[in-house]
Design a protein around this nucleic acid. Structure first.
Length: 423
RNA sequence: GCGGACGUGGUGAAGUUGGUUAACACUCUGGAUUGUGGCUCCAGCAUUGCGUGGGUUCGAGUCCCAUCGUUCGCCCCA
């Protein structure tokens, strides 16, 4: 096999990683603002954590990295964050927490065996939050607010929030039945995928990209929420209005997995740089997941943001400032051995200054070029005379001023020069 | 899983219907200037090598097949 990254994976090189970190740091700042705490769950879990019974969707059957190291246990690299966090919530008995909801967050790598494309890798990073253990429209609105204002804080334009309600279990089951009886007589007009969805997850038919004569879908019965769900949804919208978060109701928005109940949302980009992968983040409320995982009947809500996609957009909108690493000093050595230079450099570093040095013998010109590339504020020249006199020739690259300083006084002199400059 | 495009040094890339030593530019290295950089000038820089492996041919970066990867779209998107 060739020595190269596996298809759909990539190296995050220093320059890009800095931008990545910037996005993460800002996200963590928002976690703090909204009172979320970060947790780490294992990269792999028992397959059952991600694969619910009766789930035969593409994503679980074809798109998970599932393996069996001992031929017995079936393990899977996490394809998403929610399941692991909910598992942890239950396993660590956080449902007993005095303060509800428990507000958790993660920034982690996910793995999906999909065909790679722009904005879609097989290993990718998601930042997400989950508010578990309580159900109130205010929590839904707050979750959306965190995501929305985070995206705005990055400086992205052309984003919009899509919002929908799938209703509570009662509303949804009723609606499912309605859809089944509506589509049943028209089965032959549906694509193969939708025919198989008909009984399992008829809501997905509404979101099908294959055109089955748009009339059929357009005329499908609309979801009618029961009174409780309608009031809940209205409150969510009301709170979003108060926070001045613009949103669009999209009744075709059903999300892929059927553990979602009531509020579902997605933030999409209208920037063409995102290509066909326009969803920046998506999430929703889940009333049944915690119980399914062996916890009490509790509800949760969360979302996940794809960091790679954010990065594509952020780069397209050129919101990153040019990064320029720099050092305080660069030490040039003109002597055969580096002993004296090492002492000088070591002292300065121990004083807290960032220092680079020349490692091997090369021309003065080459060393000066290095100092430039490292963007050194000061150049320290160490030749025969300096070693003899226990001094260092100090050149300020901004003022071009040059002076000879005693080795013991170097650190203090540098600090002074830097302070003077900023005055 | 399906369909289209693409793959030449560290980088950006030229390479006409297959024909001698793979253009040009940037970067880098050395020198002019062996204790003072940025400018200028000179020189060097793709292990007979053009993603990889086969094939056709007197001859292939150029044609054919396969394979790997990238990319665009479809599917999917927890």
């Amino acid at each position: 096999m060739p020595y190269q990254t596996v298809k759909g994976t990539y190296d995050l090189l220093p320059e890009t990683l800095l931008k990545f970190r910037e996005l993460e740091d800002l996200f963590r700042h928002f976690l703090e603002l909204y009172g979320y705490q970060e947790i780490k769950t294992p990269v792999f879990e028992y397959t059952g954590v991600f694969q619910k019974e009766n789930d035969t969707s593409d994503m679980v059957t074809k798109e998970m990295y599932t393996f069996s190291p001992n031929g017995k246990d079936s393990l899977t690299l996490r394809p998403e964050g929610t399941a692991g966090v909910v598992r942890s919530f239950v396993e660590n008995k956080m449902y007993g927490s005095p303060e509800m909801p428990v507000k958790l967050a993660y920034v982690e790598e996910m793995f999906r065996h999909e065909r790679p494309q722009k904005g879609r890798q097989r290993q990718f990073t998601q930042m997400g939050i989950e508010a578990i253990g309580d159900k109130d429209p205010l929590i839904d609105a707050e979750v959306i607010a965190l995501g929305y204002f985070y995206i705005k804080a990055i400086g992205l334009n052309g984003v919009k929030v899509l919002l929908n309600s799938l209703g509570d279990n009662e509303s949804r089951l009723k609606y499912k039945d309605q859809l089944i009886s509506y589509f049943e007589p028209h089965q032959d007009e549906l694509c193969a995928d939708c025919r198989s969805r008909l009984y399992k997850n008829p809501l997905r038919i509404l979101d099908c990209k294959v055109d089955h004569g748009s009339e059929l879908i357009a005329n499908a019965p609309k979801m009618v929420l029961n009174e409780e769900s309608q009031i809940y949804f209205d409150k969510v919208k009301h709170y979003l209005d108060i926070m001045q978060i613009p949103y669009e109701i999209d009744d075709k928005l059903v999300r892929g997995l059927d553990y979602y109940t009531d509020t579902v949302f997605e933030v999409v980009s209208t920037n063409e740089a995102s290509g066909s992968q326009a969803t920046i983040f998506g999430g929703g409320r889940y009333d049944n997941l915690i119980k399914e995982m062996g916890g009490p009947q509790m509800s949760g809500i969360g979302f996940a943001i794809g960091v790679e996609r954010l990065l594509i957009l952020a780069e397209a909108e050129e919101i990153f400032e040019a990064y320029q690493t720099s050092v305080d000093c660069y030490a040039i050595n003109l002597n055969e051995d580096p002993d004296y230079m090492i002492q000088v450099v070591n002292d300065l570093r121990n004083e807290g200054l960032t220092v680079e040095m020349n490692y091997y013998r090369r021309s003065l010109k080459a060393q000066f070029k290095s100092s430039e590339r490292k963007n050194a504020r000061f150049v320290l020249i160490i030749g025969e005379d300096e070693v003899k006199e226990k001094t260092v020739t100090l050149k300020d690259t901004l003022t071009k001023a040059q002076e000879t300083v005693k080795k013991e006084e170097l650190s203090a002199r540098l600090q002074q020069l830097m302070e003077d400059y900023y005055e």
